[in-house]
Design a protein around this nucleic acid. Structure first.
Lengths: 162, 162
DNA sequence: AATATATGTCAATATTGCTGACGTATATTC
DNA sequence: GAATATACGTCAGCAATATTGACATATATT
């Protein structure tokens, strides 16, 4: 059991607040992904492609199994999407140096271009929301979001503090 | 352009922070929906059913077009899911009193039971995260989430302040 | 009476996920 | 060196969810 700040009466834990929390997540995520989906549709790709492009872009040289863990999908599901992206020249695969069974993934120039196109709108949306809310609110947002996700995912954010 | 708090240096708007924001949304939403999906799978229903059950539960007597707007899907997509839920006795449809073209939706007892089962885990997850983060953080979380969503969705939350 | 709106439905298609089974290349272990 | 494990890929089949387009019915509105 975690202690709350002194003077806090936990009024924010009413059933109504929890319901609101559920809806905040639903609507924010819905609107956050909507525009990207529209762009993707024009490229004949879907949201799954977006996610792959995004994570390979952020973590160049990541292994397939690593990516599978992040996406929480099966390798068969990833395979189809990855195959398309490799075949169409968005992603490069290279054998790992220490373990040559691995296929390390990186974005090609074409892939980077698409990644930029896709995330620019999302970055702008986040930036606007952050700016509007202010630094303290952003810190609160982070805390709550970290609390919502699983421990395993939370670790990622504690590690890469710059 | 919105003014930020005085003394704020906008360091939280670095590219790295925006990237982190994208990931926070991705992982929090992924984990937030994961367990519900597992329960649903056992009931032969999917996430779409969950969303319908949830919103009809929260806003009893809501019209089909209203629900369509919230879910941002086509009526054909909703139709299949809704048909199943009505046929299997989770949802009741009644003609609107003022406009009899409408089919107003409400949960049956069976529907309410499923709704409870489905959202209880999500409520618990939100509650734990809120408690851990504290009241101030929750307020920041709300601000940022509202900023991320579209104006149209934001209105919903400004209206029903209790 | 003409038109618009709320809802439902049929058909065809795409994306994304799943399970199960099997194959290849490379590492690790006995 | 042989057996086993791991990383990855792929084929086949299935299910859920979403789409567009077309058309129908009942009721409201003009």
């Amino acid at each position: 059991m975690v202690e709350t700040k002194p003077g806090t009466n936990l009024l924010f834990l009413r059933d109504e607040d929890l319901r609101q929390g559920i809806e905040l997540l639903f609507f924010a995520y819905r609107d956050f992904t909507a525009e990207g989906d529209t762009i993707l549709a024009k490229q004949k790709f879907g949201r799954a492609h977006h996610r792959v492009i995004y994570f390979v872009g952020q973590y160049p040289g990541m292994s397939v199994s690593n990516l599978l863990g992040i996406l929480s999908i099966t390798k068969q599901s990833l395979s189809r999407v990855l195959r398309q992206l490799v075949d169409e020249g968005y992603i490069d695969q290279q054998p790992g140096t220490t373990d040559r069974r691995q296929r390390l993934l990186t974005l090609t120039a074409k892939g980077k271009e698409l990644e930029q196109l896709l995330t620019s709108e999302q970055r702008a949306r986040i930036a606007a929301a952050y700016k509007n809310a202010g630094a303290d609110a952003v810190e609160g947002f982070r805390k709550v979001m970290l609390g919502i996700m699983e421990d395993s995912a939370r670790r990622r954010f504690n590690e890469d503090k710059t």
